[in-house]
Simulated scan of single mutants.
Amino acid sequence: MMDYVKICFKKYADFNGRARRSEYWYFYLFNVLVFLALYIPVIALIVAESELVILPGILLAIYGLGIIIPSLAAVVRRLHDTGRSGWYYLLGFIPLVGRIIILIFTIEDSKPGTNEWGPNPKTVGNDNFENDAFV
């Protein structure tokens, strides 16, 4: 899991290429877990009416701002992997159905072979995968 997260952070603002489903979804899961880890103390401190709520709140805001570009880059690369332009992400702004459309696009399997955004990441470096799988 962490290898895929590292890939997304290494490609911080790289909107070129393709991203496998596992790369995108592990990165998404990592972000959800980090947000939960930062958000739970915020809620607990709000309930406790503590003035210390500002510290985890600031950390949450900093992480949220810092993750915007890599998250956008990851979804664009994921859309490229399904054979779509990154501009399809703008469909997510359509009320109610837009996010569902993007969800379906990101769940889809990779388009086989090379497309205009590069080779299929499932087959890069795996030329002999089928031959070596059951040896």
Results as ranks from 00 to 15, higher is better:
residue 1 M to W: 08
residue 1 M to Q: 11
residue 1 M to A: 13
residue 2 M to T: 14
residue 2 M to R: 09
residue 3 D to S: 10
residue 3 D to L: 07
residue 3 D to M: 06
residue 4 Y to G: 04
residue 5 V to H: 04
residue 5 V to T: 09
residue 6 K to W: 09
residue 7 I to Y: 05
residue 9 F to S: 01
residue 10 K to E: 15
residue 10 K to M: 14
residue 11 K to L: 11
residue 13 A to N: 15
residue 13 A to H: 12
residue 13 A to P: 12
residue 16 N to A: 13
residue 17 G to C: 10
residue 19 A to R: 03
residue 20 R to K: 11
residue 22 S to T: 11
residue 24 Y to E: 02
residue 24 Y to R: 03
residue 24 Y to F: 15
residue 24 Y to G: 02
residue 25 W to G: 11
residue 25 W to D: 09
residue 28 Y to T: 14
residue 29 L to K: 02
residue 29 L to N: 02
residue 30 F to D: 10
residue 30 F to R: 14
residue 31 N to S: 12
residue 31 N to A: 08
residue 31 N to P: 03
residue 32 V to T: 10
residue 33 L to D: 02
residue 33 L to P: 01
residue 34 V to W: 02
residue 34 V to H: 03
residue 35 F to N: 13
residue 35 F to T: 11
residue 39 Y to S: 07
residue 39 Y to Q: 06
residue 40 I to T: 07
residue 40 I to D: 05
residue 41 P to I: 01
residue 41 P to D: 03
residue 41 P to E: 04
residue 42 V to R: 03
residue 43 I to A: 14
residue 45 L to A: 11
residue 46 I to D: 15
residue 46 I to C: 15
residue 46 I to S: 15
residue 49 E to F: 09
residue 49 E to T: 09
residue 51 E to H: 12
residue 53 V to N: 03
residue 54 I to N: 06
residue 54 I to V: 15
residue 57 G to Q: 07
residue 57 G to Y: 06
residue 58 I to C: 02
residue 58 I to G: 01
residue 59 L to P: 01
residue 63 Y to C: 00
residue 64 G to P: 01
residue 65 L to H: 01
residue 65 L to C: 07
residue 65 L to I: 06
residue 65 L to M: 07
residue 67 I to Y: 01
residue 67 I to N: 02
residue 68 I to M: 01
residue 71 S to E: 01
residue 72 L to I: 13
residue 72 L to E: 03
residue 72 L to Q: 04
residue 73 A to R: 02
residue 74 A to C: 09
residue 74 A to R: 00
residue 75 V to I: 15
residue 75 V to T: 12
residue 75 V to H: 02
residue 75 V to N: 02
residue 77 R to S: 05
residue 78 R to W: 04
residue 78 R to S: 07
residue 79 L to P: 05
residue 79 L to D: 05
residue 79 L to N: 09
residue 81 D to E: 10
residue 81 D to W: 04
residue 82 T to C: 07
residue 82 T to M: 04
residue 83 G to D: 06
residue 86 G to V: 11
residue 87 W to L: 13
residue 87 W to A: 14
residue 87 W to T: 11
residue 88 Y to N: 05
residue 89 Y to K: 07
residue 92 G to L: 08
residue 93 F to R: 01
residue 93 F to V: 06
residue 94 I to H: 07
residue 95 P to I: 01
residue 96 L to T: 04
residue 97 V to R: 05
residue 98 G to C: 08
residue 98 G to I: 11
residue 98 G to D: 08
residue 100 I to R: 11
residue 100 I to L: 15
residue 100 I to V: 15
residue 101 I to N: 06
residue 103 L to D: 05
residue 103 L to W: 06
residue 104 I to Y: 14
residue 106 T to N: 13
residue 106 T to I: 08
residue 107 I to C: 13
residue 107 I to K: 10
residue 108 E to D: 03
residue 109 D to P: 03
residue 110 S to H: 11
residue 111 K to T: 15
residue 114 T to I: 14
residue 119 P to I: 14
residue 119 P to A: 15
residue 119 P to G: 13
residue 120 N to Q: 12
residue 121 P to Y: 03
residue 121 P to Q: 05
residue 123 T to A: 12
residue 123 T to N: 12
residue 124 V to M: 07
residue 125 G to P: 12
residue 126 N to A: 12
residue 128 N to D: 12
residue 129 F to K: 10
residue 129 F to L: 12
residue 130 E to R: 08
residue 132 D to A: 12
residue 132 D to C: 05
residue 133 A to L: 12
residue 133 A to M: 06
residue 134 F to E: 05
residue 134 F to T: 06
residue 135 V to E: 14
